[in-house]
Nucleic acid binder design. Structure first.
Lengths: 255, 255
DNA sequence: CGCTTGCTTGAGGTACATCAATAAGAGTGG
DNA sequence: CCACTCTTATTGATGTACCTCAAGCAAGCG
């Protein structure tokens, strides 16, 4: 847990790149984001960033590793709701509802940049474009949540898993991560809880996908030799990720 | 389709009440919302408000009736993602992404107030509190989407349906709708597509819930004689609805 | 080097789906 | 007001995609 000055730490540039996937940001705005005071912290596997009910005062950006968001039912069943990849703002919704309604856990050893909510709010107050970019990022997440509902609600097991893999591979690629990293570091238990299946069934589906050459596997990793080959069997349509975003006039002149 | 002036039409007051469920609004802000130019339009059952891929220029507020939001898989399976009750802002996400990623359909004969996106954006630019309130409404929706993922992913059929009924009854109550209206106007096909089940199975579950006195039924309506009795078997926890909202300082002074 | 965590595979069970047929309304036109 | 159609609800019979239980194995780790 060390405080960094922007000069020595490019962490928040990842956030800039990520926001620019869906929103235009001037160089001035980008600079303001990179200059935000923040602290960088390592989180070990399985450590909680936030538990349901916690009151938060900071927002986190994932720098490296993987984080997931989940809820647990009254019967103790876990449902993973989101998988975050490097660059993702993790819990910027806490800017608006600081008491967490989900838990957040490091799925892998991860590095995070923490920004004080007050600093973020000040920045967003000063820059409508940044404010819009954050909101748009939250809304893309929202669209992904809906797609996950479709996934667990109306697709069979193989399609569900293929769809999850397609989504992650595209999101990783969009973040500019190279192919070694496109290897998806998901345990079968995580895939099960993300897709509403049992670990046993996930295992069988993976075996079958491997036999059909759709995926490769190595030491617990899943790799996609050809991500585009998987899309047909996943019924995958990337519209919901909003990569080719509708251009809205973000920089509307203040009247 | 008639243009109304606020004096003769209280439509948007429902939106004010709805936003105030999660956000503080000054009387001045409330007044500004009620004054928004808008048109009121009727929609017949099953008519589409928006289809996936449409570019929108207005946002809708549901005044009476019911609307649902859904996506269709590559195999043609429908998953309902959201059910809107009177007062709900339906598609304010289109302020930020005007090309729809979901379809919206009137589930019942409905009345809607349409507001030009530009007018809304101007109002939000002028009032940070309104802007925050809209974002918070969008984030509550997002939290509901996540709960639906939990619902279809990790709950059994009876629990799923009970959970859906609990949610709707609470949301209707929050909107101040009386008991006649708390009768839930859901077809079994809608309940099936909202919960990821088949219509046949929904029918059997309803039969069983009725036998256990958890619900009453009358002419296609479902009624909850005692909504709180249903919560235990639904594993229902209303935190995700954010009714007892964390007080955030919305009216932060501009510096 | 034992312990834990994750992966794998088989056997058996079940909570759902699908198919199919009937019934009950609800709206429509004559 | 009746005949028509269309949608929604209901129920039975059958099938299956998934789950649970259980055991064995591999690998990382302290």
């Amino acid at each position: 847990m060390s405080l960094r000055t922007p000069a020595e730490d490019p962490s928040l540039d990842k956030l800039v790149k990520r926001l620019r996937l869906h929103s235009a940001l001037s160089e001035r705005d980008a600079h303001a984001i990179r200059e935000l005071p923040h602290r960088v912290m390592e989180q070990r596997v399985n450590s909680y960033l936030v538990r349901e009910g916690d009151r938060t005062t900071e927002c986190a950006v994932l720098i490296s590793g993987f984080v997931h968001r989940f809820r647990v039912t009254a019967e103790g069943q876990r449902q993973i709701l989101s998988l975050y990849v490097p660059g993702d703002p993790i819990d910027f919704d806490h800017l608006y509802f600081p008491v967490a309604d989900d838990s957040l856990q490091a799925a892998r050893h991860s590095t995070l940049a923490y920004i004080d909510q007050e600093h973020l709010r000040e920045l967003m107050d000063d820059s409508p474009a940044i404010s819009t970019a954050v909101t748009r990022a939250l809304l893309v997440d929202s669209s992904i949540f809906r797609e996950w509902t479709v996934n667990v609600g109306r697709r069979d097991a193989q399609t569900r898993i293929a769809h999850l893999l397609c989504e992650l591979s595209l999101r990783l690629q969009a973040q500019g991560l190279d192919f070694n990293e496109v290897a998806l570091p998901l345990t079968q238990a995580e895939m099960a809880d993300a897709t509403g299946l049992s670990t046993v069934h996930v295992n069988r589906i993976l075996k079958s996908l491997k036999a059909k050459k759709y995926i490769q596997r190595e030491g617990g990793l899943v790799m996609l030799p050809d991500p585009s080959a998987l899309r047909p069997i996943a019924g995958f349509d990337d519209r919901y990720l909003h990569f080719n975003s509708d251009p809205v006039n973000h920089e509307r002149p203040k009247n």
